[in-house]
Design a protein around this nucleic acid. Structure first.
Length: 460
DNA sequence: AAAAAAC
């Protein structure tokens, strides 16, 4: 099957070619004909499967064929600013020859952005991609006309409900003509989403692509660690030089920040990423990360969904995500576009149960990797030896443990990779009690995580 | 146990 089977407008084919799209992905093959035949659609699919293009292409094709275009033809709602931005960029790429206009509408800008958005909404733009809050802000100012919209897309609908956007979405949808065609995409399909979908869609067709199964090309590993072993282990992995594009996830902003400070003391070009950063900074960081100018991001779950960066070889879960589904999303940042990748999770004794829930969701066990030598040694030094001579937090001899590894390859400080110089509280490194480390070692294999390099079979 | 999103 090729894209020409869909009889798209000729200009769209040029966009496809320029974007390097050749063969429809499974979800595209299934979804595009449904949308072309004017049905509502409810689709269970993750990003990276070609989900975005699966709705953009038929929508753009329909827009190309309109004799007269309304002020706004299509509205896409997305949960995060980065995702909205990314969808907009995809429209721009595909629409380059088709003369379709688009605008990402999201908050956090500097005021100029707001005015540009306002102007576009007032004068008309074919496809609007918005986060709900900012769109409502524009609606309140009375300049937005959503009533002529023909296509409404809810992307990452499960996430939007999680984030409490339900009322906002309803408020927006009320303004959109009921003549519209509606498409809802969700990575998961719990009853709550299904019920919500029922209120928005008319007799939808359903498409299911891989509910909770991570991509084939991901090698998953877990390390059983104590809290005090996490950072040394992470350092060793990052300094091994085996990975050139990495995301480290942590569950809170504070931990992301302190980890960023900690790691930037080494010669690692790391950059924290979370919602406390200025939007402009978020955009610059992501751009540099995409361009492989920045090798390591340390982020919250704002990065866990939707963000599609090709070539990430490693995802580290510094802690187990609170929501099992976030795990699937996090590790899905790697092994995209038929590449392979590694996903490593640090599991401490408190996280064991949560990790079991993740394994249950995936219906598979995750291989347990033995801790490398330097880390084991660290665990076996009982802390009271050091502790009783004065209570110095004792932070000066970090990072000297990695003699088994080579100099960091992924550590070119490209330009300023400084950690945001905010006034943070002192490190909250002191844990009340240190649990004895529980290891269930199966055999000595004192090595850094193996990086699997076998290319997956080329599908065509 | 968290994060995200408007001004």
């Amino acid at each position: 099957m090729t894209f020409s089977d869909f009889n798209f407008d000729i200009n769209l084919f040029e966009g496809l070619a320029s974007m390097g799209f050749k063969t429809p992905t499974p979800i595209q093959a299934e979804t595009i004909p449904i949308i072309q035949s004017n049905h509502d659609l409810i689709a269970c699919a993750q990003t990276g499967t070609g989900k975005t293009a699966s709705y953009l292409l038929p929508v753009m094709d329909a827009i190309c064929r309109m004799e007269q275009r309304p002020t706004i033809s299509a509205l896409v709602l997305a949960p995060t600013r980065e995702l909205a931005m990314q969808i907009d960029q995809q429209v721009e790429g595909l629409a380059y020859f088709a003369g379709i206009t688009s605008m990402a509408i999201y908050g956090g800008g500097d005021g100029i952005g707001y005015e540009q958005q306002r102007k576009a909404l007032r004068e008309g733009v074919d496809i609007v991609i918005a986060t709900p809050g900012r769109l409502i802000a524009h609606m309140s100012s009375g300049i937005v006309r959503l009533n002529e919209i023909k296509f409404l897309v809810l992307d990452e609908a499960d996430r939007m409900l999680d984030m409490g956007f339900k009322d906002d979405i309803n408020r927006i949808v009320r303004e959109v003509s009921s003549e519209r065609q509606t498409m809802l995409f969700s990575a998961t399909m719990p009853p709550k989403i299904r019920a919500f979908a029922k209120t928005l869609l008319k007799d939808p067709k359903q498409v299911n692509i891989a509910i909770s199964q991570p991509a084939q090309g991901i090698v998953q590993q877990q390390y059983r660690v104590g809290d005090n072993q996490k950072t040394p282990l992470l350092k060793q992995i990052l300094q091994s030089g085996d990975f050139r594009s990495v995301i480290v996830f942590s569950s809170t902003k504070e931990k992301v920040k302190s980890l960023g400070r900690e790691l930037s003391k080494l010669e690692l070009a790391v950059q924290p990423f979370h919602s406390d950063l200025a939007q402009e900074e978020r955009e610059q960081i992501l751009l540099r990360f995409r361009n492989k100018q920045l090798p390591i991001l340390i982020g919250t779950d704002v990065l866990s969904r939707g963000i599609d960066v090709v070539g990430i070889d490693l995802v580290v879960n510094y802690d187990v995500p609170p929501d099992p589904e976030d795990y699937i999303h996090r590790i899905g940042r790697t092994a995209r576009a038929e590449r392979t990748g590694t996903a490593i999770t640090f599991v401490n004794s408190r996280d064991s149960r949560r990790f079991l829930a993740i394994e249950r969701l995936m219906e598979r066990k995750v291989e347990e990797a033995p801790l490398p030598e330097g880390i084991e040694a660290a665990a076996e030094v009982p802390d009271h030896h050091e502790r009783r001579r004065g209570n110095q937090p004792n932070r000066k001899r970090h990072g000297g443990k990695s003699k088994h590894h080579q100099a960091p390859k992924a550590a070119h400080p490209e330009g300023g990779t400084t950690v945001a110089a905010t006034d943070e509280k002192p490190d909250s490194q002191k844990k009340k009690k240190k649990r004895p480390f529980k290891r269930r070692n199966k055999g000595p294999k004192p090595d850094a995580p193996q990086h699997v390099d076998t290319p997956s079979s080329e599908a065509s």
